[in-house]
């Protein structure tokens, strides 16, 4: 096997880790990344259930359009793929309504 495209993952340096909470559970994130990315890294793929059939949903378009990744922060529905995490941030799933 000949690899023409090298694995460069070890050359990536990230910021320090911080902790926020999703659905009551602590989740680690690198400072400066989005809630969605942190949840993806933590293996938390389901970020809400759909209102009509309660089916699990998560990150999809990754560009702030599809609204699949929305979570509740400070009582507001927020796109997780566009919201930067901060230390101690409390994030809740929307689950159904809204």
């Amino acid at each position: 096997m000949i690899r023409l495209i090298r694995d460069r993952s070890t050359d990536i340096k990230r910021t320090r880790l911080l902790t926020f909470h999703f659905d009551g559970q602590p989740v680690q994130a690198h400072e400066g990344e989005t809630v969605a990315v942190a949840l993806l890294r933590a293996g938390q793929l389901t970020t809400r259930t759909a209102p009509n059939d309660q089916a699990p949903r998560g990150l999809f378009c990754c560009m702030g359009l599809c609204q699949e990744c929305v979570v509740v922060i400070d009582g507001r529905v927020t796109e997780a793929c566009r919201r930067i995490v901060t230390d101690g941030l409390v994030v809740e799933p929307t689950n159904g309504a809204p």
């Binding site: 990344e33 990315v37 389901t46 699990p56 949903r57 998560g58 999809f60 793929c81």
Partner: peptide, 23 residues
């Protein structure tokens, strides 16, 4: 296609470019 873990193909590139994270 609504299963968590299914991402848009172009959308996935946002993950690589922004956070350098895998789907």
């Amino acid at each position: 296609w609504t299963t968590p873990g299914v991402h848009g193909l172009a959308g996935a590139t946002a993950l690589f470019k922004d956070a350098l994270i895998l789907p």
